[in-house]
Each structure stands twice: as C-alpha cells, then as structure tokens.
Design a protein around this nucleic acid. Structure first.
Lengths: 346, 346
DNA sequence: AGAGGGTTCGACAACGTTGTCAGAGCCGGA
DNA sequence: TCCGGCTCTGACAACGTTGTCGAACCCTCT
C-alpha cells in the first residue's frame, strides 16, 4: 500500500533497506533498485510510488553493499605527508577536483612523514578497495604495495619517487629548479653561496643539492665544505647552520639558497635579525612572500599541477590505459622578488 | 596442501578471497577469518599455515564486505569549505588525529562554499555509511540531514552553526574576539575605526560585526555608516572599501579591523602602498604575520582545537553518549604584534 | 572405561545490494 | 484465434565477510 510521506514513519536508529521500501510501496525489491539507479523499464506510476516510499522511510542506499556487489568503490585514496602543511592543501584539492569530475570521492590520510604509518594507511585504503591510490611517499621502500598493484590497484606517486618499485611518478624538477635558483644568485654577482636543505635521504632534497652543485660547477666556482648543510629542517638547526656560514672568518657566504619553504621562512627570520643584507632564494613559493621586506625570491613549484597531473594519470589507468610506468617531471618557475637580487656585500 | 610463499602464485588482476586462502591452506573459511582478525582459538600451527597462504596469495581482507556485515565502517566524514585554505589544513589534521586514536579513517571533501555541493557530499558520505559526520557548513539549511541523524548518523558542525536543525556546534568566539580586537584599538587611542568583513549572511561574519559594534558602544563611540563594509572578500572590493574609509574627507578612519584573514592580507597590501601609518587588527592568525613590517596584530582562533573538540564530541556520541545538542564556543586570543598598537595619526 | 569439560574447527546463514533470467501482461499481425 | 515480440516486473543467486552453533577431538578425573 503506497502512502504519502509521513514523518512518523521515519524511525530512530533504523536504516530502512530496499526490502523495506519495496514492502512499503508494494513492489518487488529489484524495482526499487531500478528506481534508485534510474534504470529504464519502470512505469512513471510505479516509479512515483517507489519515490514516495523512499522519502517516507528516509531510505538511503547502502554503498557498502553496492561496492561489494559491483567491485568498484568510486573513490580514490590519497596518502600525504601532512594535511596541515600549506604545500599539500592545493595538491589535495587538485586531486579532489579531478576525482570529482570522474564521480569519485577522495579518502585521504596523513603519514606524518612516518614510513610505517604511510604503509598502514596505504594498505588500509587498499582494504577499502579504493579504485586507485595517489601516494606522497614518506618511506623509500614501497615493495609492500606490489601485491596490491599486481591485483590491479592503480597507483601513482607524487612529489617524491617510489622506492624499489616500478610505478608512475609525478615530480617537480628539483634539480633544474635549484640549479636555476643558484645560477640566478651567481648572475647577481655572488661567488660564495650557502645551501641549507632537508635530509639528503629525501630524494627531492638530494636533487636540489645536486642542482646547487651543478650551478656552481657550471660557473666554475669552488664549493667549500662548510657551505652545504643538508639535515633537519628544525628551526634551531637551520638557524645555527646559517649563522655559521655567514660568520665564517675566512670565507663567509654572501647568499643563501634554501632547500624548501620551511627552511626559507627560518632563514628570513635569521636574516631579519642581522644588519648586513644577505641574498636569499628559496625553493618552493609561500603565501605572503611578496609582502616581506625584502620580498622573497623563490623557485616556485606548482603543487596543484602535481596533484592534477597525478590524478589524471590515475584515472587514465582506471579507464584502461596500460602505458609503462613513467616519470613525469613538471617545470619550476623562478620568481624574482627582491631577496635574490641583493648584490654581494663587501 | 600448505605451501611456502611463492611469488608465482600472485596472479594479475585477481583478488583472492578468504575462500581462496582457505582452500590453499587446507582449512575452513572461518578459520582464515579468525586468523585475519586475530581471534583466539586457533592453534599456532594452523595459524602459521594460514599466514603463509595469505602471504603466498597476496590476500587482503575486503573491508566492504566486512562493513556490510558489521554495520560499522570505522571511518568518519568531513565536509569542509576548501582544503586549499590554510585555515582548514590544521583543522582537518586535528580531526584526522582524533579519528586515528579511535582507529577510524577520515574521508573528506570540499564544498567550495556551495550549499548544493555540501549537500551532495554529506549525503554521499552518509551513503557510504561513515560512522559520523563533521560538517563545516557552506549553506544555512541543513534539514536535509534530518533523516540521517534520525537514522543514527552522529553529526557535529564546526566553525559555523548548523541551519534549521538541532545539532552539536563547535565555534570560535567571533563576537568576543572581534570585540576584544576593536577594544584593543580603542585602548590605543583610536576613535574612528573601520570594519571590513565577509557577507553578513555568514554567521561568523555577522557575529564579528556585532562584536565591533559592541566594543564601540561600550566606549561610547559613534559608528558612522561609512565605517562598516560587510560584503565580498574579493581583493578589489576590500581594497576599494578600505580606500574609501581612509580617504573620507570628513571622518577618515585611523584604524581598520579585518573580519577574516583574507581581508587582513588584502589590507596589508593596501596599507603598504600608503604613506600615513594606519593601525590594523585582523581576525584569525596567519603564517608569517609576525614577519611583516609592521607585524600584524591579530585575534587568533585555534583551528586545530576546533577540529579536535568537534571530533571528540563526535566520538563521544559514537561511544553512546546522548547529551542534548550543544553549542561549544572556544575562546580567541589577542596577539599584539605591532600593527594594532600604532597610534592614531593626525 | 566412561563421563565431563575444554579446545579447535567448519558449515551455514546473514548483511544489502545488483545482475540474470524468466514470467506476466499487452499489442499487433497473420 | 493464436503467435511473436515487446514492456514491465520480481525471484533468485552472488558479492566476501562475520556471527552462531554444533561437531570432533583431546585431556582429566572418577
């Protein structure tokens, strides 16, 4: 017996199923399924009756059951390092937008830079049977994903390369960007340039250091041992390293290149406390860099583009494309704003 | 017949099930389930054999089926406005951390400030049967969630109140924060203070405007019509509004209060281009505010705390707590840095 | 030797949905 | 009148897991 929606039929703590709706509307289970999924072959009269029952009971399809039956979840997973890091917000958002155009939801989690947690998260997402996985690696061994990939899990790595496994990777051009940034300092007359970056076991950090060395070598400039300080990005460590380079009695550096935006911000603070101007170029742009005095010259990478390209690659694979695993490198842009154009002092 | 793990048994594009593992290990289906879930009642010998088969076949439990059977998904949904906005990164992360301590995953989506999209997202999450929902409202009518809540979906709103529905809400003290910020300007000698904020139909924006008026009233200061400019936060609109207040021939303002951090940043740019110093206090802190010259005085809200409190409330409800819907208001903090302590010019 | 209790294990149903297939009803044409 | 071919509908199995329950076995005690 069909009936008009009456709130009283909504019951607390009970999830009506298609079976309930079918009974309420006086039709078969499958007919409800057809209406819910807008499948053809239902008379307008029947459809209307079913719709009324759906609203009366407050029915909502249980996607878990649907997923179980269909095998596809219409969702993709994103494992990233830290959602609170402003670099990953736009990346996350870009992945989400691409997913949205494909009708998929995004499930994400932060690894907090912990390889074990990255692994747990990625495998949890696999257990949920997301259709695909975008991973910003924290660890450097991703063989744990091999069974998943083999079983058909499309996977794309972003921002850092995958470790010991053959998979798509989307990266910024760390080497080229750092080389261009350092060359920019050299072009403005600097000869003694310091490099402060992240731990060298992080691939991007190592690449940026390599870019620094390449630029120096191309200008035939020697690099003193004391001028490179890869390591933790903790403000204390970074500040101490900078002070040491700047105050070196014999060969003080006149310019600094920062390996990522956290280092850059720390260096801005250090330099603000000093009288003699020091040139600074940072890898990775950040908000308000243009409002600081001097405004900060940076090598900008396009976080949104990283996310977009990675997600598109993922959906290409989900659509059936089977190209060989590829390394896609996106260009960086040098943005001169002032701090990188300060001439050497003394 | 049990066997040692041999990679060749991993087959492409095939997901082994517990049944496959059971056959491979020569045990019953349920025994595999027991091993996977670490349930007691399996001899070490059997367990070992099953583990070997699991690894040999690359088995991973299908959580969709598990969810279907158990009724709980161990995941919560978060609908927010824009992941790329730096304000929401820490909030998101805080929710995730709380979820993690409860063994739950976070599924999130951006509404892009579009009520219709918020609705779609929230309902999609309900269809996935997330255990609970944290919503940063974009719209102001959430009656669409009533059937879900009635059916047992725990729901907490953050940052802005829910519309036309009775539910938990966690908010920053917009009124009190704005009042304190404006009072701070008054305490530094200002009498003509401008307010530039977001559209007043946004609850927080209206509250902040109310706080501004309260502070002015408490100091017995009149508020000229031209001194309040609620509306779009588009930089052009904000800049024009600021210029108009500052250049008013009769009653130019000597200080500005910004209703949110986007407005603040725009005002910093506007003021940087002017010669006469103008005092500025912004609602909501932002990175590097302390490095600008002058450093920007703000009324800080704790985005992470908003997320944490909301998520904890959610899990309390999931654990069975059934308190009446409540409005939880978190305090704000005035952070004097320089821009808010500039005395009135002229 | 038999009873009693504990441990280990597997057959089976159920979760809510969708795909398959066949039945019922109707129409038009021979 | 009967048949073929539509359209609309529902019964049923299946997806992969977990909860229930009872069977089989081993040990101990009388």
């Amino acid at each position: 017996m069909p009936s008009a929606p009456r709130p009283s039929e909504l019951r607390y703590g009970i999830r009506p199923t298609m079976k309930d709706v079918a009974a309420h509307a006086g039709v078969g289970l499958k007919t409800v399924s057809r209406v819910v999924n807008r499948e053809p072959g239902v008379t307008p009269e029947t459809e209307h009756r079913v719709q009324a029952s759906i609203e009366a009971l407050g029915f909502r399809r249980n996607d878990s059951a649907r997923v179980l039956r269909k095998g596809r979840t219409a969702s993709i997973g994103l494992v990233l390092e830290d959602l609170a890091d402003p670099f990953y917000g736009p990346l996350n958002r870009a992945v989400e937008e691409v997913a949205r155009t494909h009708g998929a939801l995004l499930i994400n989690g932060s690894s907090a830079e912990d390889p074990e947690r990255e692994r747990e998260l990625a495998l949890a997402l696999c257990a949920r049977r997301v259709d695909g996985l975008v991973v910003i690696p924290a660890g450097d061994d991703h063989r744990y994903l091999e069974p998943e990939i083999r079983a058909g899990m499309a996977t794309v790595f972003v921002d850092r390369p995958a470790g010991r496994i053959d998979a798509d990777v989307v990266l910024s051009d760390s080497f080229g960007g750092a080389r261009a940034g350092v060359a920019h300092l050299i072009a403005h007359g600097h000869r003694r340039i310091g490099f402060i970056g992240d731990h060298p076991h992080i691939h991007t950090a190592a690449e940026r250091l390599r870019g620094y060395r390449a630029a120096m070598a191309e200008a035939a400039l020697p690099v003193a041992e004391a001028w490179t300080a890869p390591g933790s990005t903790a403000p204390g460590r970074v500040a101490a390293a900078a002070e040491a380079m700047l105050d070196d009695a014999a060969e003080p550096v006149t310019a600094l290149f920062a390996g990522n935006n956290r280092v850059t911000v720390t260096l801005v603070r250090v330099l603000a406390a000093r009288t003699r101007p020091v040139a600074l170029v940072g890898f990775d742009d950040f908000e308000l860099a243009d409002l600081l005095r001097p405004a900060v010259t940076v090598v900008a990478q396009d976080a949104a583009a990283l996310g977009r390209v990675a997600a598109e690659r993922l959906f290409d694979r989900l659509a059936g494309a089977r190209p060989a695993a590829e390394r896609i490198v996106l260009p960086t842009t040098l943005v001169p704003r002032g701090s990188g154009e300060i001439p050497p002092a003394g």
